[in-house]
Nucleic acid binder design. Sequence first.
DNA 1: ACTTATTGTCTCAATTTGTAACAATAATAA
DNA 2: TTATTATTGTTACAAATTGAGACAATAAGT
Lengths: 236, 236
Amino acid sequence: MNSSDFLPHIAYDSVIFGFSGEKLKILIMKYHNTGFYALPGGFVLKNENLNDAVQRGLKERTGLDNIYLEQFYTFGDIERFKPEVMQMILEANNIKVKDYEWMTDRFISVAYYALINYDNVVPTPDALSDSCDWYAIDQLPPLMLDHSKIVQKALQTLRDNLERKLVSMNLLPTLFTMKELQKVYEAILGETLRRTTFQRQILSLGILKRHEKQYSGKAHKAPFLYSFDKASPSVL
Amino acid sequence: MNSSDFLPHIAYDSVIFGFSGEKLKILIMKYHNTGFYALPGGFVLKNENLNDAVQRGLKERTGLDNIYLEQFYTFGDIERFKPEVMQMILEANNIKVKDYEWMTDRFISVAYYALINYDNVVPTPDALSDSCDWYAIDQLPPLMLDHSKIVQKALQTLRDNLERKLVSMNLLPTLFTMKELQKVYEAILGETLRRTTFQRQILSLGILKRHEKQYSGKAHKAPFLYSFDKASPSVL
DNA sequence: ACTTATTGTCTCAATTTGTAACAATAATAA
DNA sequence: TTATTATTGTTACAAATTGAGACAATAAGT
């Protein structure tokens, strides 16, 4: 894969959501020697579909195939164009800026959010970065360029889509309790929900399949386990 | 404005909605001598915000400033890349393909929909096209490339946003009757609505201001005129 | 004055949601 | 064994919203 195999001026950034410890988290990269924190992103090959490029990048960061992906906005302001930032990153990696001039040019970035099962993932940094780690969305480090804005817009879109799409299905393991499902909704919406109303509404959708009980060893009634019912017409 | 002033590989397409004769319509261009029908679109200047480029294009097509615009998807499949199509358009206009090679390269297109008041507009073709005309969304001619797919996605997004955003405000004149407002909703949703329920729900939002009656000369009770109340907190 | 088409409003039933109560558990402690 | 505790599934009832229809109030035309 050669530098000139990429489409110039076009990049993508991904907001990769996972759910753990009652919190919504996203993956953040830290670049070598610069202290820059950024969203995982990348470029599009000249003979590659945009969506495939993003899947390819996510596979590299997470090891997962067929990730649930949703494109939500394309950021194209000129204020994004800060050549000195990319220059510092290249220099911090001992890369000759001359050879990668296309990288310091203006970029338009297509932003996606992904939903993945936190437990299945081993976050993996790329060649330019020290780390790729989970951060709770309310405890993010300062992000470079307009990446904070991108995260905010991703979160807003996720909230808006919560009712219409089966978002939570991608954030939970196959089997889960009603309480866990509620916690996901609460983490996304940023507010607490009433237990009985939530349970009634979710069950009335007819998309859940009930399984055996889960005994936690705690001194109280054991909850049922549920899964999303693939046989249900509304589950794609 | 020189050819090399544009960002290569990046284009935009716009689905410009208007409402007339109880139907939702969009603007379609017809290219010279080729029989190609297409959405109004254009390119982004190297020192121009993406969103500003779209506003600039819409101003040329409609004569209007400050158009209500919503970005809804970026189309980036390689199957979009059909160099022979752009080549035919250039040749049909006696433009040397050599001088405009960047135009026949692969493009990623950021798609927007716009909402405008039908009556305020004089659709204007550009240098490459014969016409720029209104077509009802259920009577579109065959569109080039993936433009039909773009229209479908625009319509779907418009429907999804109908409750959350004050869409109809941009499609109607300042003063309108309850029946006209209902027709806009019906045209967008593609289904008929119950008169009494619609009226009750819309009024309960508290965003309409009631004005004098409108006497049509017809033999029946005259309806009130309404406007969107700028003083209402939910109207931006 | 009578007719017609349409509009604004009201009524009542049907449905959905908010809120609280209650019984059923799974373990622990007495 | 028998309370005790925390949590869960379900029900009951009030409050709010929606569906469906009825009805009175027009602006003309006849």
